[in-house]
Design a protein around this nucleic acid. Structure first.
Length: 375
DNA sequence: AATACCGGCGAGT
DNA sequence: TCATACTCGCCGGTATT
């Protein structure tokens, strides 16, 4: 028999990059640990990628400038600043994801440190059993790589995710289907995944601050303010309605971006750009994919994101072609925008299967003309 | 009217 | 104060058919 309820588990690795560094060097535990992405412009230019809870307590969290973080912790001799070691974190992540995948009916990795498991069948729709499973997963992760994690369980990805968020660090929280409404209604709207600062402000101007209020708000008015899909979607989410399946998704786009050595208003940074194209091309061939759209990303000195893109006649995985398209897009970008840019990137999208040459365009439909054409 | 594409924005890790 | 590197998804506008 198919279980009546879905049983979905969301698993999050706690403060992932920083915790990986604690594993590498256990002396870092109890010290503020700050994982940094140095942009290489000046000594401390760049941003904090993530930090452990010791650092967060002191106000050093993801996204802030490294220089700011150093100033904040300057009187704390224990504070540790480390460059991001993504390869190492990736190895740890891969090992964990392999374990999780093997325990799920269906599995979906959503980022380097997060995954959903649909365990409806393996737990036979039984939430008590899912709690046992969650305990054993957390234990398996701890014993294999030494990391703590947080797990949320409910009947949808949305609520499981929110439950995991609420339980962290090193927590576990079950929200049974009958408890979903109660779980949501008094929470501030910003707790809903997808509602960030901007959306929160717009909702506040409609006098909506709690999820319960959003759940009961006029659907059509939400549609007018937030758009036909997004508006009603917000209302459904606030009601705890989420039927999205747990399934592995193919990547839809790849991008690489760098901070330029010097701000620029012309394409005089080809040397810095070319490796991005090479990188994307080799990733494409790893994935056995080709891209039929190539685009560029430009971040202005005012930190506004700009983009240009072009659809190719034929999908490609060639570094040379991607680089050439990107150069042309940057040239025309600088011709029309008289802006200085700080960061530059390349993005490919419309990815399709197959690394071998193959024309995927349909044949020109010469038979579709009117019969009258021949009269 | 439906679909495709583009550029911008917002959110999340 | 200074402000990384990604990925995903949606929106409105415009072009294409």
């Amino acid at each position: 028999m198919k279980p009546a309820n879905r049983v979905i588990l969301a698993l999050d690795l706690d403060y992932f990059y920083a915790q990986c560094e604690e594993v590498k060097n256990p002396a870092f535990k109890r010290k503020p640990v700050v994982v940094c992405v140095y942009s290489g412009r000046t000594e401390d230019s760049g941003a904090v990628s993530t930090s452990n809870y010791e650092a967060r307590k002191l106000g050093v969290k993801a996204g802030i400038p490294i220089a700011f973080a150093k100033r904040t912790l300057k009187d704390n001799p224990d504070a540790v600043f480390l460059p991001m070691d993504k390869e190492y974190y990736q190895l740890i992540s891969d090992k964990i994801m392999e374990i999780l995948r093997s325990k799920a009916d269906t599995f979906e990795q959503v980022s380097i440190d997060e995954a959903y498991l649909d365990v409806s069948n393996s737990c036979d729709g039984n939430y008590a059993r899912s709690l046992e499973l969650a305990r054993s997963l957390k234990a398996a992760i701890l014993s294999s790589v030494g990391l703590t994690s947080s797990v949320g369980i409910s009947n949808s990805k949305l609520i499981a995710k929110m439950a995991a968020d609420e339980s962290k660090p090193d927590g576990m929280l079950l929200v049974e289907p009958e408890k979903v409404k109660e779980f949501l209604e008094n929470k501030p709207i910003g707790k809903l995944p997808g509602i960030g600062p901007k959306t929160e402000e717009k909702l506040a101007s409609l006098n909506i601050t709690k999820l319960g209020e959003l759940a009961n708000f006029d659907r059509d008015q939400l549609a007018r303010v937030f758009g036909r899909n997004l508006g009603p979607g917000l209302k459904l989410s606030a009601q705890g309605v989420d039927n999205s399946p747990v399934e592995e998704k193919e990547p839809e786009q790849l991008s690489r971006i760098i901070t330029l050595k010097h701000d620029s208003n012309a394409l005089n940074f080809k040397d810095e750009l070319e490796p991005l194209a090479k990188d994307i091309a080799s990733r494409l061939s790893e994935l056995k994919k080709r891209a039929s759209s190539v685009g560029i990303i430009a971040i202005t000195t005012a930190l506004k994101a700009k983009s240009r893109a072009r659809t190719l006649e034929q999908a490609t995985d060639s570094a040379e072609l991607i680089f050439k398209e990107a150069c042309e897009l940057f040239d025309s970008f600088f011709r029309e925008e008289k802006k200085e840019i700080r960061r530059a990137g390349i993005k490919v999208s419309s990815l399709e299967e197959g690394s071998k040459k193959r024309n995927v365009l349909p044949d020109p439909d010469i038979g579709s003309g009117s019969l009258m054409d021949y009269v």
